[in-house]
Design a binder for these strands. Structure first.
Lengths: 237, 237
DNA sequence: ACAAAAGTGTTGCTCGTACACCCATGG
DNA sequence: CCATGGGTGTACGAGCAACACTTTTGT
């Protein structure tokens, strides 16, 4: 490292790590990698790297995703920064964690092999190196609470999808079952879905209408909340 | 900087910045500092510093608060990390922002003078250096959404307080007025307040009971949420 | 025709909101 | 004795949960 003008003696490396969530229209999964370098070579880990001097944090995370999957414009959100002194055994590394949401079917299979990577079901996540396990836990919590407030999750579905598929996604995020009738009514009432003329007949004889996410609907809603809508669930979590 | 083992050419400084919110039983305020060093000397800014090699991020933020105020155990939360390449004009600095909640009356006045610091009302916040203005905006948003889920804000009140004072705090966080009767009922229904025998007579003839926050009440509540309690306000914000 | 998934309707209940009303007391 | 803030009660409505019910169509 070159000397630092403000504080020459500072000697801390900085990395970006990515938690990658994927959905295959059935289960929510996590992408993990076998570490290729010492120390801890061969253990499961998130993907990450020490950043370049002239690339922003956000861009570094995007670049990791792009090189890995070939995908651009994926959903990517900064999660938290991990700064314990001894989190890496070799030297001090501060890591900024990001998480992303990806459709598994869009992901290049060859790329998985090249990177020695594998999709894991949530109940089968192995031990991860360093504090990567903590990062994953934090990311799942953050994802769950994000979905409460943002019409998120559409990144994980194909452009056209049935209400049923959307429900399956939400169920796998929350690990719980919703009532089909109520789920449908709630989602439709939000006025963020657009029904198309097409039907999907793969899972029923009657066929289910395919919907599409209304892009323009985001942000145009007035945040018309009453008093306690704001401080409602003060005690939860 | 000494050379970095994993990636010797990396040359990025790392800092912690603190957004300090204070409450004087009437208004929510922000503590700002006149920058003492070039570049941008004399402009208003948050307080922060390049961290030590052997101090964690969380501890660095705590230390800043402690040296400034003499207070320990203040509420402190990591907000976000700012990593644009050119955010600092002199060299690349990545900054991890924290925000904290403090009672203004506990704050050492002499310390304010020593640091050339001043409490600002929210509607009178001046332009800040670098991306500190963005940090403050992000912190306010985060504070508002945190208060929704955590019995937070008690850090900002004296040990004994009236429901009225609690309401004033929430009103200044949300910049809105709540119905006194409903606010009272809601807060009491949460079972996190303990009524004491004492009364505060400074603002009425009848006198208002002083309450105290039940410390043991946190976390013991079952997160018993129904289906849509989870995905309820999908569209807000 | 019937099984099975798609989709609709109905009812009870909880809880936020609005607002009327009682209580205590110092001047 | 009345003005003022503290504190309680009630009625209405919105929205979630549970579940019964109708629709469609391939076999």
């Amino acid at each position: 490292m070159a000397a630092n003008k403000y504080r020459p003696e500072q000697s801390i490396a900085i990395a970006v790590d990515c938690i990658i969530f994927g959905f295959d229209s059935k289960d929510l999964k996590l992408l993990l990698f076998r570490r290729k370098t010492e120390p801890l070579k061969g253990s499961w880990s998130l993907i990450g790297e020490l950043i370049d001097n002239d690339i922003s944090l956000d861009q570094s995370a995007k670049d990791i995703l792009y090189r890995l999957s070939g995908l651009e414009n994926v959903f990517l959100k900064q999660l938290k920064t991990y700064g314990q002194v001894d989190r890496d055994p070799l030297e001090r590394v501060i890591s900024v964690a990001y998480y992303s949401l990806i459709r598994i079917d869009e992901f290049n299979l060859q790329s998985l092999e090249n990177h020695d990577a594998k999709w894991f079901d949530f109940d089968q996540i192995p031990d991860l190196i360093l504090d990567h396990g903590q990062m994953v836990d934090d990311a799942i919590k953050s994802l769950r609470s994000s979905v409460r407030y943002n019409p998120l999750g559409f990144e994980l579905l194909p452009e056209y999808f049935t209400i049923q598929q959307l429900q399956t996604l939400y169920e796998s995020i929350y690990r719980t079952a919703f009532d089909p009738g109520n789920f449908r009514k709630k989602m439709l009432s939000l006025d963020i879905l657009e029904r198309t003329a097409k039907k999907d007949k793969t899972s029923s004889k009657k066929g289910a209408f395919l919907y599409r996410f209304k892009k323009d609907s985001v942000k145009q809603f007035p945040t018309q909340t009453g008093d306690f809508e704001r401080i409602k669930e003060v005690i939860k979590f």
